[in-house]
Amino acid sequence: METVIEIKDLKIAFNGKPVLTGINLTLCRGENLAIIGRSGEGKSVTIECIVGLLTPDEGTITVLGKDITNLDSDELKELLLHTGFLFQQSALYDSMTVRENLAFPLIRVLKISDEAEIEKRSVEALEAVGLAAAIDKMPSDLSGGQRKRMALARTLIVNPEIILYDEPTTGLDAITSKEISALIMDIRKKYKSSSIIITHDMSCAKITADRILIINEGKIIAGGTYKELENSSDPFIASFFK
């Protein structure tokens, strides 16, 4: 199967304190990969390195065949057109309406100026996440779950091949979490995307992930399907499934 992301020996330290001490992982086309681990173990740092928000100290990150550590800013921006990132706190542009949030990447990244086209794609993206009625609302008028959906719509509007989810269900109630998890599956089916899902939420990982990696002290210590890891005899791994 084609590899869309390959990370080799990724290392990063903040103020001399090592956070990632040698991450190795691959993401195949069409796969949903969940990374779980305790807080502060470097899960979010890993995906922030993938999109160039952080620069690793060592290692290589190959996204769609390009090593992002060797790209200049224009090449990186070009590559980012193929990736989407869902932030933990949604990161909606709070001074813009939902419509303007959705139009932002279309106008400024894809350089689309046709208003009818922008409107069509905005409505499509909102319908994909079940939020079509909210198009003229401000982000502050949306609930936590709606904000996640809205952020997802803004990610989907550029039809990314890869979507990186940073804690997609954090701060949501159990029912909304399940809805978001189901939405992640719907999106894979509809957009044929490959995803890395950073999560603490084991029910989210169970629903969405084809494969789960467990990170500890800046390294991947185990990987497998939900069932394989659930039956692990390692007490640390088993502790995530209790």
Partner: peptide, 24 residues
């Protein structure tokens, strides 16, 4: 305004979408 956008990751969201946050 910009500090608040930085703290709430709105600038990071612009950057990862491929938009040019410095220019905008």
């Amino acid at each position: 305004e910009i500090g608040s956008m930085k703290v709430t990751e709105q600038i990071a969201a612009m950057d990862v979408s491929g938009a040019n946050s410095i220019q905008y």
